[in-house]
Design a binder for these strands. Structure first.
Length: 502
DNA sequence: TCTGGGGTCCTAGGACCC
DNA sequence: TCTGGGGTCCTAGGACCC
């Protein structure tokens, strides 16, 4: 342990000599960089990668735009149709024809190919894992590294004119900067894609630093200079400040991170809740969150847009397909779920969610579908533009039980990637309370539907003080009325046919 | 700018229990 | 009887992130 937060020790580690060294590695327009990796013709060209986009179409949204494309005003999350207005497709260009765009003002449009990007990300990850003891992967193109044990904040020898200093608030070169440069170069060399790196004594400052000089940036913020580094930045540069919070802050005359640092935490908490207090701490350079590996997912979902429709059959078909997909992914990952929910977005953008929790965790695609459809029925007469299905309250069965179900264990390969050890320091912080009742885990629906498994009080009977009497699953919530002697299915039917008055 | 898809965390209110 | 506090679980919505 680093002992950094012993009782009595000041949590403000910003100026202490025990300062951690945290890197935030952020790949530059990652999808576009990946495409360039396999097609050299795209280098130097404006490249737009669209999700939900297919060649020749105008639907979908911009997932990533290269910096060349951004120069034309193309931005992330922009509808493809609008991007095309600003930057026409190259294939539509013809230098001979005055009626079509000039090639110089056009770009290359490609659909997202997640599988390929994940393969490239695997190469990046391999470098990062090799360079850090503790690694938190935030997304396919972003990660935090705690490299305190690999490097230090010590300044390196004198003023060597031969070496240029990284962009940053300090002119003093440090070992940490040299190490960050090494990591950055290894990524470029071994994975073939560029990255920006932020170096700071804590996560939130490192995150802001990596953003400060994109692309191909390296920004170092040594201990003691975090607050000064952040101060001039607009509030929106702080991680966790989106449009809504930015507006709320502006109304109080808070425009910069420096203003946030000067604000009264309690006053801000009145407006923003605990987030307000946290924001002030971050802006002051205080952030003692440990870099921890990402835990297991908390929910799985799929959603898709559709042309505005009120057609019941169309909606049901969509939800059935989404439900099947979510259930399949859950099974692939060896995870049980206890809550099934839907999302229905009504035009113009009215987001509605509905959810139903089961008495215990299941792996049951049919049930996902039937519950989702039942929840959907509330919107039978409504026009929607997007539908989604989600499972949550996840329960990752131990591997032996996952195999028991006849499928392979946790997929390890593609997305998850929680597989690499970190073993001993266990307690990934995640595994949220909720009790879950470890002994009940992994039991499959069939174990208790239609009767409780012998000798087991059943999932859900675990909390301290629970008056669990072993009477089986009927024991769950208030709807015990006559939910039929402990049959999960029966109680579901009760809920869906009769009880849904609520 | 009428907005794609996958997530996380937080909050608030209600039901229920002791 | 109309009143208390504390705790948990559930649902719904919102903000934010990439």
């Amino acid at each position: 342990m680093d002992g950094g937060t012993l009782p009595g020790a000041d949590a403000d580690d910003d100026a202490s000599d025990r300062s951690r060294v945290v890197f935030h590695v952020d790949m530059d327009c990652f999808y576009a960089s990946c495409e360039r990796l396999r097609d050299a013709d795209l280098r130097g060209e404006p490249v737009v990668v669209g999700m939900g986009y297919e060649a020749g179409e105008t639907i979908g949204a911009v997932a990533t735009a290269s910096y060349e494309a951004r120069a034309f005003g193309v931005e992330s999350a922009m509808p493809i149709s609008e991007a095309l207005d600003r930057l026409p497709r190259r294939v539509d260009a013809d230098p001979e024809d005055p009626d079509v765009p000039d090639p110089d003002g056009t770009g290359r449009y490609l659909p997202v190919d997640m599988e390929f990007y994940e393969a490239v990300a695997g190469d990046v990850k391999a470098v990062l894992r090799d360079c850090a003891d503790v690694l938190r992967e935030v997304s396919v193109d972003e990660a935090y590294l705690d490299v305190t044990d690999r490097t230090a904040w010590d300044a390196v020898g004198g003023d060597d004119p031969a070496s240029s200093s990284a962009a940053g608030p300090s002119d003093v070169r440090t070992l940490a900067e040299g190490y960050a440069r090494h990591v950055k170069e290894r990524i470029e060399r071994e994975a073939g894609v560029p990255a920006s790196v932020g170096v700071a004594p804590n996560m939130s400052a490192a995150k802001v630093a990596s953003d400060a000089d994109k692309p191909d940036g390296l920004v170092v913020v040594p201990p003691g200079s975090v607050e000064a580094f952040l101060a001039p930045l607009p509030t929106a540069a702080l991680h966790g400040v989106g449009p809504v919070t930015e507006r709320a802050l502006a109304e109080r005359g808070i425009e910069t991170a420096g203003d946030v640092a000067d604000a009264d935490p309690d006053a801000l908490a009145e407006e923003l809740g605990d987030r307000g207090r946290e924001l002030v701490r971050r802006a002051r350079g205080e952030d003692d969150r440990e870099v921890t590996p990402r835990g297991l997912p908390k929910s799985l979902s799929r959603e898709s847009s559709l042309p505005r429709t009120a057609d019941e059959e169309r909606k049901r078909e969509t939800v059935s397909a989404l439900a099947a997909d979510v259930a399949r992914r859950a099974r692939e990952r060896g995870c049980l779920y206890r809550t099934i929910g839907i999302k229905a977005v009504r035009p113009p953008f009215d987001v509605n969610t509905r959810a139903h929790s089961l008495p215990g965790p299941v792996d049951d695609p049919d049930l996902v579908e039937s519950v989702a459809l039942e929840l959907l029925s509330e919107f039978d007469d409504e026009a929607v533009r997007k539908l989604g299905v989600r499972v949550s309250n996840l329960d990752f069965a131990d591997s032996d039980q996952a195999t028991l179900g006849g499928f392979e264990g946790v997929d390890g390969g593609g997305g998850g990637g929680d597989d690499e050890g970190n073993g001993t320091d266990g307690d990934d912080g995640g595994n949220d309370g909720n009790g879950g009742g470890k002994e009940g885990d992994g039991r499959r629906l069939t174990d208790w539907v239609g009767g409780k498994p012998a000798g087991d009080p059943g999932p859900g009977c675990d909390g301290p003080g629970s008056d669990c009497d072993g009477s089986g699953v009927g024991h769950d919530r208030g709807d015990d009325a006559d939910s039929g002697g402990g049959d999960g299915q029966a109680s579901l039917r009760d809920w869906s046919e009769g009880g849904r008055r609520g």
